[in-house]
Design a protein around this nucleic acid. Sequence first.
DNA 1: GTTGTGACTACCA
DNA 2: ATGGTAGCCACAA
Length: 103
Amino acid sequence: MPALNAQQVIWQTVAAIPFGKVATYGQVARVAGLPNYARYVGTVLKNLPEDTALPWHRVVNAQGRLSFPTGSDAYQRQFALLISEGVVILEGKISIADYAWQP
DNA sequence: GTTGTGACTACCA
DNA sequence: ATGGTAGCCACAA
């Protein structure tokens, strides 16, 4: 049996996203060696404790947008964190240059 | 076992 | 650009 379960591999991958950079759910899944797990990546992040050290805010959807209803509380929290790291967001979309791995 | 759900995607009309 | 659909995966009913 593998030493790491899917959830742990995902944690590792998210933790590997550099400060000021972002990655899509699909990318995290693929880089983690788990293609087609994009949806599960979201599920894993949702279950993270509030005091987690993981940079969950650096994970966005394939459209380069935050996967929360625009203006919602969660949306604004993630948005603020990204801005604080210098991530450029225009018209709600993240700049290509801010991806840890080219999409 | 089946069904519904969700911080997802890709494809197609 | 926009909306619907079909794959996907894990988990709770």
